[in-house]
Design a protein around this nucleic acid. Structure first.
Lengths: 342, 342
DNA sequence: TAGAGTTTTTGGAACGTTCCAAAAAAAAAT
DNA sequence: ATTTTTTTTTGGAACGTTCCAAAAACTCTA
């Protein structure tokens, strides 16, 4: 009986001895149908193995329960976790996710978006690739389904999309202040390209320094793509630079932090004693580095859920002004930011 | 002009002064239409901002370019990377992925599968959750679209699905032999529940031992859910057990290995000198542990691609017998398996 | 230039559902 | 028992595309 499910609503109707309209109502849980009738129909459906053709339904009703997810790097555990939170929330409301990993490639992003569009999607959640251009923004605006951006803001001058982010400024502030409180006095900032989010983070960094009456020294701010390899390279360059005497650093994210841990280990620097390191994201690996990494936790799972919630809300009601939701962060202190008493 | 794209093929037709059938042919790149006509139509499409309604098309032609992906844990970097390879390959052939992360929950798995089914999917790629039961297998068999399983085999007595896996037996063999060649003589095996894959791995482990004329001692084989925390717990128990004198271990996967590294560090054991550790999967983090982790690489990206390829092939031609494709693995040697000369 | 052959275009039915207005059935009121 | 009201069920049109058989437009040959 594994025939290509051409069992339709009509077959159910004749099996149950009602009209197709009634069957349709039953499927959609309408309160119009009499309980007895519903029972008959449901049984008929089971008897003949009916599978709802949601595409036909969506087609006719011009609606959709598919949400398009565009994420720039799913192999980053933070985003994978975020995805999981997102999907769970969507599933709870009967939505399902078409996913595209863009690998930071703006072209792939545009291409996949166009393919997704053809499926009449209910809404998009986007964590845009680097180099996302106006063409993409325009494309998003053109279509009238809601769009929510997460973590990274879409480079839209009009800020016309909802945006869910972590309070990275506060996080960076907490991280920096913590190192200063530990007694470190030459705290650098490592990683990230010159983006709006990073600017925001640096504000937190600078605020903490100024609260301790310390000057910001641009030599101590290192700009690079936030990868493990670059973290290692950065710390090496900084430590070997003659006119820099770093004794701690705040990292753009945990990947960078892992790189610096590694670099420092290699340089024979005792992290958590003579040098403090703080990461950002609190990925699972942070708890298991040597020494364990102090990190700013921006609950990925939670952010995913929030983004999903926002999108679902927009799908219902797309009249509000765009909002920017900032989820709180917290500092998770482990050994990498410790300090040996002088 | 951001009207809810009710621009249809008919609008294009009248704009271009041809029939809707011609437009349809143009969309589908039919060689039937004269180049000149095609040009006119394409221009008309652009002029009025036509978006192909693929759902309507799929609906009418009873086909689909959506592939259902069911994966048990996307937060495991191995699977995230596999997903990326998979998606890339699918996209190349014009397919797009509906993804479901089951978080090892067989109920979620079944539920999401049923939702996916309603979208008349072209085929499924499944990495089944633990505890996948016959009900799910039956459900997969019921529907007549192809199914490919990856990494974990579907618990189907008839083995009626394609299966793409890494050569874990060989990998475990290589890992064990390597440790033995380094001079370690009390090599344990840590992690994994009693599953078919693990049995396979243990075969490789045992083979290597026997090649060195060593007995298999069940005390040295530790069974547990393969997580970091359990890896740590395992090594601790083993090392503190009075009648066990372990000097090396092969781990079920890198997560477990990271746990053991951590545990050993805590116990003051010098990994890579007096104790050898080998992981499995060669996740990105393996290169950056202390010491760097020797690991068996089963190119995740490649496996994803292979699974996608297999599914695409099946979608074209679903008559062949199910196959089991085993992708080769290789040992990536780093410091964790080193040994101090006696 | 008529006829045959070939290429290109076309109109209408069909896919499986929802929507709608209206019919039928049941319940309540007289 | 009839009428009115309320609840439940229904048939046909519609959604935007593809499919198909047939028409139209060309090309070639004699």
């Amino acid at each position: 009986m594994k025939k290509n499910s051409s069992v339709t609503i009509n077959d159910v109707a004749s099996e149950a001895g009602v009209s197709k309209s009634t069957v349709s109502l039953v499927i959609r849980n309408s309160s119009l149908v009499k309980p007895a009738t519903r029972k008959v129909v449901v049984e008929a459906m089971q008897r003949i193995g009916y599978v709802y053709n949601r595409d036909a339904a969506n087609f006719r009703s011009r609606s959709s329960n598919i949400v398009g997810l565009i994420i720039h790097d799913l192999t980053n555990p933070f985003f994978a976790e975020m995805y999981v939170g997102l999907e769970k929330r969507l599933a709870n409301s009967g939505y399902i996710a078409l996913l595209s990993n863009t690998s930071e490639d703006a072209e792939v992003q545009l291409r996949n978006f166009n393919i997704m569009k053809e499926h009449r999607i209910a809404g998009f959640i986007v964590c845009p690739a680097q180099g996302t251009d106006q063409q993409f923004i325009e494309a998003l605006k053109q279509q009238n389904t809601p769009v929510v951006s997460v973590i990274r803001r879409l480079p839209d001058p009009d800020k016309s999309f909802d945006y869910i982010s972590a309070d990275v400024r506060q996080g960076t502030y907490l991280a920096t202040r913590h190192l200063l409180e530990q007694g470190y006095r030459h705290v650098g900032y490592i990683g990230g390209l010159d983006t709006p989010i990073r600017k925001d983070r640096l504000k937190g960094y600078k605020q903490a320094l100024s609260e301790f009456d310390l000057r910001v020294d641009e030599k101590y701010i290192y700009t690079c793509q936030p990868t493990r390899a670059n973290g290692e390279k950065a710390i090496r360059e900084l430590m070997l630079s003659p006119n820099v005497e770093l004794d701690a650093c705040v990292c753009y994210n945990d990947l960078v932090a892992l790189g610096t841990l590694w670099g420092l280990h290699d340089l024979g620097v005792a992290v958590g004693k003579e040098f403090g390191v703080v990461g950002f994201d609190n990925v699972a690996a942070a708890a298991h580095t040597t020494p364990p990494l102090t990190s700013v936790a921006s609950n990925s799972d939670d952010i995913g859920r929030a983004a999903a919630e926002r999108l679902l809300h927009r799908i219902e009601n797309n009249t509000e002004q765009p909002v920017h939701i900032v989820k709180p962060v917290e500092l998770v202190v482990r050994n990498s930011s410790g300090r040996q008493p002088d």
